[in-house]
């Protein structure tokens, strides 16, 4: 059973690792790497939702005549991947500006706004 559900187990573990990286690390770039892991975990979750045992990819070009996996999650995942790269790029440019202005990208130094 557990072996059968492997991708979902991986999703859970990766989500926890990603969240842990975000929460327990101080470095901004490390946090962004954590966000990347989290995004990958969610994408993996979406894709594994659509997998059907013994199915083939939902493309009729030169396909063998077998049952197909569900196509919708793959479409959703494509959108999600684009959003992920857009997010990462914007966050990294923020980090560069922070480095220029503050001289540090540790979370402990990003505390000029508080109370």
């Amino acid at each position: 059973m557990v072996l059968y559900n492997l991708p979902y187990v991986a999703v859970v573990v990766l989500t926890i690792i990603g969240l842990g990286t975000i929460v327990l690390k101080q470095n901004l770039i490390k946090i962004f790497l954590g966000i990347m892991i989290l995004e990958s975990a969610v994408n993996l979750f979406l894709v594994s939702l659509g997998y059907r045992e013994g199915g083939i990819a939902p493309i009729y070009t030169n396909a063998p005549d077998r049952v197909m996996v569900l196509p919708t999650p793959q479409a959703l995942t494509l959108t999600s991947i684009v959003i992920g790269v857009a997010t990462t790029a914007l966050l990294l440019s923020f980090a560069i500006i922070i480095w220029k202005k503050y001289g540090s990208i540790e979370i402990g130094f990003l505390r000029r706004l508080k109370e």
Binding site: L28, I35, T87, L91, F94, I97, I98, K101, L110, R112
Partner: peptide
């Protein structure tokens, strides 16, 4: 200019990304 706005943006954006995920 001050960098403080970028700090606010990072805080907002990291949180909203996690929420969106």
């Amino acid at each position: 200019d001050g960098g403080v706005a970028v700090e606010a943006a990072i805080k907002y954006f990291v949180l909203s990304t996690i929420g969106a995920l």
